[in-house]
Simulated assay, not measured.
Amino acid sequence: MACLQGRLKIADFGWSVQSEDKDKKRKTMCGTLDYLAPEMVENKGHDYAVDNWTLGILCYEFLYGVPPFEAESQDDTFRRIVKIDLSFPRTPLVSKKAKNLINGLLVKDSSKRLSLQEIMEHPWIKENANHTGVWK
């Protein structure tokens, strides 16, 4: 994570892979517990959609201060992820549009998660980022 001229950039390319075959799914279990997508927890094949899942986790954590599926034990966290046991603490500080974005990203079926294009066109993103992608 870096902050330069008031812009926050987050990157983690430790497990990134470039693949010519877009239909090929990976089976590697890697990452931080709270950020694992359901398909990884269930040892199923996964693709780029895990990044969209992680974006949903980050949005939730930035807005609420904790990861959405955090639990006492690793097994309980895994259960909450697989069940999508997601709740939003009551606060007037987080808009319905922000919750809608998170709900669109934290979807168990990876083919139904918001795409990058849908994320960029989401009303909450459009309201909070200018045309250059810099947050207002």
Rank of each mutant, 00 (worst) to 15 (best):
L8H: 04
I102N: 06
I125Q: 13
E70L: 09
S16Q: 14
V66M: 03
D75Q: 11
L114E: 05
D12A: 09
M1S: 14
T91E: 09
L55C: 10
I102E: 01
S111Y: 09
R113H: 13
C30G: 11
D21V: 12
A37Q: 07
G56I: 14
N43E: 12
R79H: 04
V134H: 08
L93Q: 15
V107W: 01
C30F: 07
V107Q: 04
N130S: 13
W53M: 04
K27A: 02
K9A: 05
T91A: 03
I81Y: 00
P92G: 09
E72R: 04
N100H: 08
K24I: 08
C3K: 12
R113V: 10
D109S: 08
A2M: 06
F69D: 08
A129I: 11
K22C: 08
T132W: 05
L114I: 06
H131W: 10
R79F: 08
M120E: 14
G14R: 07
T28Q: 10
G45T: 08
T28Y: 03
K136G: 02
F13E: 13
F88R: 15
L106D: 00
K136H: 07
K9W: 10
P92C: 10
F88L: 15
Y35D: 08
F88N: 14
A129M: 15
I125N: 03
G133T: 06
F13Y: 13
W124K: 11
W135P: 07
V66C: 03
W53Y: 05
F13T: 14
I84T: 14
N100I: 02
F78K: 12
D12T: 10
N128S: 00
W124Q: 06
D75T: 12
K99G: 00
G45D: 14
K126A: 13
G14A: 09
T28K: 07
A11S: 13
W15R: 12
M1C: 12
G6L: 05
I125V: 15
I119E: 02
P38I: 09
L93R: 13
N100W: 09
C59Y: 01
L86R: 12
A2W: 10
I81H: 00
F78D: 06
D47K: 03
S87F: 13
L36S: 00
Y60K: 09
